[in-house]
Design a protein around this nucleic acid. Sequence first.
DNA 1: TCTGGGGTCCTAGGACCC
DNA 2: TCTGGGGTCCTAGGACCC
Length: 428
Amino acid sequence: MKQPVFALVDCNNFYASCEKLFRPDLRNTPVVVLSNNDGCVVARSKEAKALGIKMGVPVHHIKQEIRQHGIQLFSSNYTLYGDMSHRVMMTLEAMAPKVDVYSIDEAFLDLTGLERLMSYQNFGQQAKDTVHQNVGLPVCVGIAPTRTLAKLANYAAKKYPATGGVVDLTNPARQRRLLARVPVDEVWGVGRKIASRLQAMNIVTAIQLADTDLATLRKRFSVVLERTARELNGVPCLPWEDAPPPKKQIMCSRSFGQPVYALANLEEAVTHFATRATEKLRGGQQYAGELMVFIRTNPFKSTVPQYSKSASVRFISASQDSRVIVQHAMNLLRSIYRDGFEYAKAGVMLSELTDDSALQDDLFGSSEIGTAHSARSERLMSVIDEINRKSRAKICMARETGPAVYAMRREHLSPAYTTDWGELPRVL
DNA sequence: TCTGGGGTCCTAGGACCC
DNA sequence: TCTGGGGTCCTAGGACCC
């Protein structure tokens, strides 16, 4: 059996790089991208990192630095990032037979057997150059016999400029040298909690984790960390996903741009979330068997009374009809709503997802609108989806209309450069 | 004043069965 | 009076990822 080889291609500072791409005037300016509601920092350009801006800090904590260094702020523009991501992935899919899109800004490539054609180092360089030429975004490439090591190789490619952004870690001696230099909390799968527990056991570098007795890791932690240690030793333990596995749950939730008090306003928000979640459901040709709705106040705001509640319902037969799911969501919301609280967030979750073939008929007949076997419901939903895809005038639930009081703050939003004819960048 | 959103997997513990 | 032990299913909670 041939030893597998994986590459991890990961975009550098993805969101910040997307924003910079369309603003050449900001080439050397520190840029940060903010989370929804312009809350905290979720991406930083290299200039912003050099200023010591940390990932995840609330933006109000760095007001001083923003003023002092002229840091440019951007609200999250997922329409733009999603489209740029798609372009990167298309480029990679043209270069390798098997590509596993792991997140919006990174993908694993199966390079097993490639060595007969070219060196891994060459391939990595080619991938990096091609993405840059086709899409304009910078990436780094890490190559290794397991995905955990490929992640680590990618970390090195980013951290050490002398690598030119490409690290081939197929050589075991080279693996050991890198492992000895990397802090254990940089290992994929080791988060804050586990890192501090490992520290208490005097395990502070990746190589110490790799050399720890596997049975001890399983006993003191879990099979997950044991697998991580095996992967660091070059033994692949993570299955390759040729196709993305079907989703098990679909969430749609948002913090509000301003406090919400009235039931009517929560109804509007929850209607919106339930509608979006159900659209995602249909996008994956799935049906939901269970719906959960939650509302809560802002737990960070200790000056106001706190309230947090969720409720859920199991459907008699699974549905993908927005009208059915919104109606259930309204019932749940009204059952948990209490007057007199300052609501900060709400959301819905669809679960018990099944695909078409797994559906069973409702024992009591399918008279309810939108049950699995209602052909009318399916046709109506697909017409709505079609119209919403093509046109700017959306079809939506009556409760969704009008300006939303809960709309999120996006004061620094960039244009939809690549997905809206009206916002194409102009070259003067 | 201000603190994201959307996921997955694993484990422990309780209920229940034989 | 004795009060086993293995298996399964479910749920809540914790940890991780980007």
